[in-house]
Amino acid sequence: MPRIGAIFQPSFPPERLRAAVEAAESAGVPELWLWEDCFRESAFATAAAALAWTEHLKVGIGIAPMPLRNVALTAMEIATIERMFPGRLLPGVGHGVLDWMGQVGARVASPLTLMREYVPALRALLAGEEVTTSGRYVKLDRVKLDWPPAVAPRILAAGEGPKTLHLTGEVADGTIIPGGASAERIAESAAVVRAGRAAAGRDGDSEVIVFVLAAFGGDEARERALADLRHWDATADPGRIAAGSVDDVVATIRRYEEAGADAVILQPTGDEPDLEGFYGKVGEVVRAAAA
Rank of each mutant, 00 (worst) to 15 (best):
residue 183 A to Q: 02
residue 10 P to S: 08
residue 193 V to I: 04
residue 67 P to N: 13
residue 201 G to M: 00
residue 229 L to Q: 11
residue 214 A to N: 04
residue 258 E to Y: 12
residue 287 R to Y: 09
residue 236 A to T: 02
residue 81 I to W: 15
residue 207 E to P: 09
residue 82 E to I: 01
residue 3 R to A: 12
residue 162 P to G: 08
residue 65 P to H: 06
residue 267 Q to P: 06
residue 27 A to E: 09
residue 136 R to C: 04
residue 33 W to K: 13
residue 177 I to F: 01
residue 231 H to S: 15
residue 118 Y to N: 13
residue 30 P to G: 00
residue 24 A to E: 05
residue 127 A to P: 10
residue 102 G to W: 12
residue 200 A to H: 01
residue 274 D to Y: 00
residue 66 M to H: 05
residue 258 E to P: 14
residue 72 A to I: 06
residue 266 L to E: 00
residue 139 K to A: 15
residue 61 I to S: 02
residue 100 W to H: 13
residue 263 A to L: 07
residue 206 S to G: 12
residue 38 C to I: 15
residue 226 L to Q: 03
residue 214 A to I: 06
residue 20 A to C: 07
residue 61 I to H: 00
residue 16 R to L: 01
residue 97 V to R: 11
residue 157 A to Y: 04
residue 30 P to R: 00
residue 230 R to F: 12
residue 272 E to F: 07
residue 248 D to C: 07
residue 82 E to M: 00
residue 267 Q to K: 11
residue 67 P to Y: 14
residue 57 L to R: 00
residue 50 A to C: 08
residue 52 A to W: 00
residue 9 Q to L: 14
residue 149 P to G: 10
residue 101 M to Y: 01
residue 226 L to N: 03
residue 21 V to S: 11
residue 75 A to S: 14
residue 63 I to T: 12
residue 149 P to E: 10
residue 249 V to M: 07
residue 98 L to W: 15
residue 264 V to F: 02
residue 196 G to K: 01
residue 217 G to Y: 11
residue 230 R to W: 13
residue 243 A to Q: 04
residue 65 P to L: 05
residue 68 L to A: 15
